[in-house]
Design a protein around this nucleic acid. Structure first.
Lengths: 95, 95
DNA sequence: ACGGATGATAACAAATATGTTATCATTCCT
DNA sequence: AGGAATGATAACATATTTGTTATCATCCGT
């Protein structure tokens, strides 16, 4: 049994988390961070972003508190007015 | 009001689409292209990729023929063994 | 011609996200 | 204190994707 001391240890343990799951978790952390930061930096409330993006305020709240993982169309609806998009990149380009 | 479900519906819809919808279309084009190309370049059949990724063959077929838009966890499950991941980038960095 | 592999599709169940509406606790301002 | 704004949450309906299982047509090699 491996000793798990940190979050990184947990994330790097492939017996518990697959590489794809790790990618997803890292992506969500990055997503929520940029999403919340950009929204607040633009001085927008969840309700205002809801009006602009077309995604309802409860859905935004659920996403920001990581209760749910967004669908791709929801992702673009929210990221677009915040000045972001997503792109596909080779795995080794992120190291 | 027309129901828009697939990429074909987008292409056959002459009405305007929002910026977020356009981002989604571009993303899906990029995704399917790289997904199919990488799979074939690795000499993998849909069934083999299904075993490796954990995503069932019918689901892969639906995605490659753009019948459905993947969920984010499905996206990572498929892209990871093909050597890709996705990242969040500023909008102007894609021009 | 035959058998195997391949991609596509059908039908239904299960899982998950979002819409909708309402409400709540907290913070902030007057 | 009072009121408005904010983020979070509840409950339920709706929409969409995926799992599951089976089947089909086509192509390819023997």
């Amino acid at each position: 049994m491996k000793q798990v001391k940190t979050f990184s240890d947990y994330m790097n343990d492939e017996t518990r988390v697959s590489p794809a799951e790790r990618e997803k978790i890292n992506f969500e952390i990055e997503l929520i961070g940029k999403m919340v930061e950009a929204r607040q930096q633009k001085g927008l409330s969840q309700r205002e972003l809801a009006e602009i993006s077309g995604v309802k305020q409860p859905a935004i709240a659920r996403l920001e508190s990581m209760k749910t993982t967004p669908q791709i169309d929801t992702l673009f609806k929210i990221l677009n007015p915040l000045g972001y998009t997503i792109s596909i990149v080779p795995l080794d380009s992120t190291k």
